[in-house]
Every structure is written in C-alpha cells, then in structure tokens.
C-alpha cells in the first residue's frame, strides 16, 4: 500500500455502469514526513475517507478485494484512514541517501 492524502473528489455521471455508487477521491502520494509528492491516483473509497485525511491505498487487482469493488473496473481503493505514524528508522533512509 502507499501513504496518501485525500485532496479532492471526482464526480462522473457518465461512467462504466459497474461504477454506479462509487465514491472517487483524488489521493496524492505522501512521503514519510507527510509532504505531498507530485503523483496522485483517483481511488474508490471503501472506508468513508474525507478531504484532508491521511489514508492508505491498495492498488492493482488487490483493490478489487472488497464487497463493493469486486469484479469492477477498479485499480485503486482507499482501505484505511491513518491515525498515527511512527517511523523511527527514518534517519536510516536519510543516511543512505546523503
């Protein structure tokens, strides 16, 4: 999964009929300091995420493993809303990069 922030919503009336009832949220990737990165996805929401919330997104065929997205043309699903992060080994990343 990747760490992301919900930054917006997409409404689409004309869409694949399997997607009727889906809530599409725009999720921007975040780095470990929760800074927004450039890349983003449009993901189907399965946990009631709201704008500004930090979430986890599963992509690929795994995203079809929910009751709603099963057998539907979906490749990204928001499956968790993050309460807290703890990355004690962040320095490990910085040392290796510098």
């Amino acid at each position: 999964m990747f760490l992301g922030k919900v930054i917006g919503t997409v409404w689409a009336t004309r869409k694949d009929e399997n997607l009727v009832g889906a809530k599409f949220l725009i999720v921007r990737h975040l780095d470990l300091e929760l800074n927004e990165k450039d890349n983003f996805v449009v993901a189907v929401d399965s946990v009631g995420a709201g704008e500004g919330e930090v979430v986890l997104v599963a992509t690929g065929s795994s995203s079809r493993q929910t009751h709603f997205t099963q057998n539907k043309p979906v490749d990204a699903v928001i499956m968790a809303i993050v309460d807290k992060l703890d990355v004690p080994l962040k320095e490990l990343l910085e040392q290796q990069e510098s």
Binding site: V47, G48, A80, V82, V87, P88, L93
Partner: peptide
C-alpha cells in the same frame, strides 16, 4: 522502518 496505526479500515 516503522509502524502505521489505523483504527478505521
């Protein structure tokens, strides 16, 4: 390198 806690999932 760390943990993530998410009660709403």
């Amino acid at each position: 390198i760390g943990n993530v806690w998410a009660t709403r999932k």
